[in-house]
Design a binder for these strands. Structure first.
Length: 429
RNA sequence: GGAGGCGUCGCCUAGUCCGGUCUAUGGCGCCCGCCUGCUAAGCGGGUUUGGGGGUUAUUCCCCAUCGCGAGUUCAAAUCUCGCCGCCUCCGCCA
């Protein structure tokens, strides 16, 4: 969310910057709304001041035995006027808030122009895609042939876009979770959390999924409660400090959590319908960093480095791209995507998205810290996948496949799975 | 789900029965100053948060805020109703 005054400050260049992501800011309308709201506040405040004076006068006069009926009559009139003024202010304040909540974050000027992933800038690549002297299969064929993935039965249970993993497939998922968490905790300095997977609408407003993107979420209701399944652990992790002031000495905070993620995938009919790439429910280890606003760019570099480190330990070729201004997510001011090489698709595919949200979420969730001179300011927040389990399984299967139908598991992970080869029949050793 | 208790400006706390003198008491902590070889103690002052207005050098004025919301009243921390959270006990449950 933005501070309306900051948006109207010419120095912010909000109109130009929002235009880069296709958002047109109506400055005159915003000026009008803000100033009429403020005028309403002044009117109501002044009336209340008068009302308080009258009440005190009534008390005094009554004590002295005077006649208070005229004073009371005037006080009742003011009360009506206050009510009227307040109703106007409330309406305008609600309109203003709704508007502010719907405006995306300002992209940084360092981002490339454009609106699609084709406009992204490639930052660096790591590793070499494996060469095969046979036609590599994709992870769906590999998983079904070895019997470690079962999409047909997942559909029987829950419909399309779910997965069942069996035997080595399930063990692979569990091993990856431990491997990712251990690396972040022991080598990257993160604190592990276990968090609720159902959260309140308020939490989702805090991180920006609501009110605009409700159709992407799974909503639950039980009794009078209204809870949503989390689309990412970013939501509970970031909101841990909602309505708090985090002392500067505690920053930066580095949090990680392993959770399921639930996404309705509305509007993606026909895209990645096969396999693990786009499903309604997947496991993910998420990283969240919270820092002073002037540190967010440094922190973003660390964050993306932590995601890359996992792929490097697994020996998976990947590249880092800087998303174009118009392709960057609603809450982010800058996003690096890490893309892993998928031989089955003969392409790099997104496996991690690392975003610097600046103070955008901090303001929405009311997470603050203090400046050197003790003033309160909103923190900056960052989040990145580190990493999603399903997409990593897909990458491991496709990159590790051998001519004999077996799959070789990287050494770093074998310590966690207890096997280093999945044979064509699904057995391991 | 049922019964009871509690919720006050960082922490603790007075005030709530009986509405106006609450501009919310006191202590602790913290900040500034005085005193002082130094430190402590002592003394004096300050210390909720959010918003609006005027000035823009500072500063000043106003409004809201006693868990949240509604109501009664000229006037609510105080009375009424609803809700939320926490604690204790009971029921149910993995």
């Amino acid at each position: 969310m933005h501070d309306p005054r900051a948006l109207l400050d010419p120095g912010t260049e909000a109109v130009r910057r929002l235009a880069r992501r296709g958002y047109t800011l109506d400055v005159p309308a915003l000026e009008e709304l803000l100033s009429s709201r403020n005028a309403g506040i002044k009117t109501a405040d002044d009336l209340r001041a008068e009302s308080k004076k009258l009440a005190a006068e009534v008390g005094k006069t009554a004590k002295a035995g005077g006649d208070v009926s005229a004073l009371k009559e005037r006080a009742r009139q003011i009360k009506d006027e206050i009510k009227q003024a307040e109703e106007g202010v409330e309406q305008k304040a609600a309109d203003l808030r709704e508007w502010m909540l719907s405006i995306p974050n300002l992209p940084l000027d360092s981002l490339p122009d454009g609106f699609s992933d084709e406009d992204a800038t490639e930052i660096r690549t790591w590793g070499t895609p494996p060469e095969f002297d046979f036609t590599p299969l994709d992870h769906v064929d590999l998983g079904e042939r070895t019997g470690i993935l079962d999409f047909a039965r997942a559909t029987k249970l829950s419909g399309p876009r779910f997965r069942v993993a069996k035997g080595a497939g399930a063990a692979l998922e569990r091993g990856l979770v431990s491997f990712f968490l251990d690396t972040h905790i022991r080598e990257h300095g993160y604190t592990e959390f276990a968090v609720p997977h159902l959260v309140s609408p308020t939490a989702l407003v805090g991180t920006g999924q609501l009110p605009k993107f409700e159709e992407d979420l799974f909503r639950t209701s039980a009794g009078s409660r209204d809870l949503y399944l989390i689309p990412t652990a970013e939501v509970p992790l970031t909101n841990l400090h909602a309505d708090e002031i985090v002392e500067p000495g505690e920053l930066p905070l580095a949090y990680t959590a392993w959770t399921p993620c639930f996404r309705s995938e509305a509007g993606s009919y026909g895209r990645d319908t096969r396999g693990l790439i786009r499903v309604h429910e997947f496991e993910k280890v998420e990283m969240v960093r919270i820092c002073a606003p002037d540190q967010s760019q440094n922190e973003l570099e660390k964050l993306v480095g932590h995601a890359e480190a996992l792929l490097q330990k697994l020996g998976l070729a990947h590249r880092v791209i800087l998303l174009a201004a118009g392709d960057t997510g609603f809450g982010a001011q800058m996003t690096y995507d890490v893309e892993v090489w998928l031989p089955g698709q003969n392409a790099f595919r997104e496996i991690s998205s690392c975003s610097d949200c600046g103070q955008f979420q901090g303001r929405r969730a009311n997470i603050r810290t203090r400046t050197e001179d003790g003033k309160r300011e909103f923190v900056a927040t960052l989040n990145g996948s580190g990493l999603p389990i399903g997409r990593t399984v897909a990458a491991l299967l496709e990159n590790g496949q051998q001519a004999d139908g077996s799959i070789v598991i990287p050494e770093a992970l074998a310590k966690y799975t207890g096997f280093s080869t999945i044979h064509a029949d699904g057995k391991t050793d």
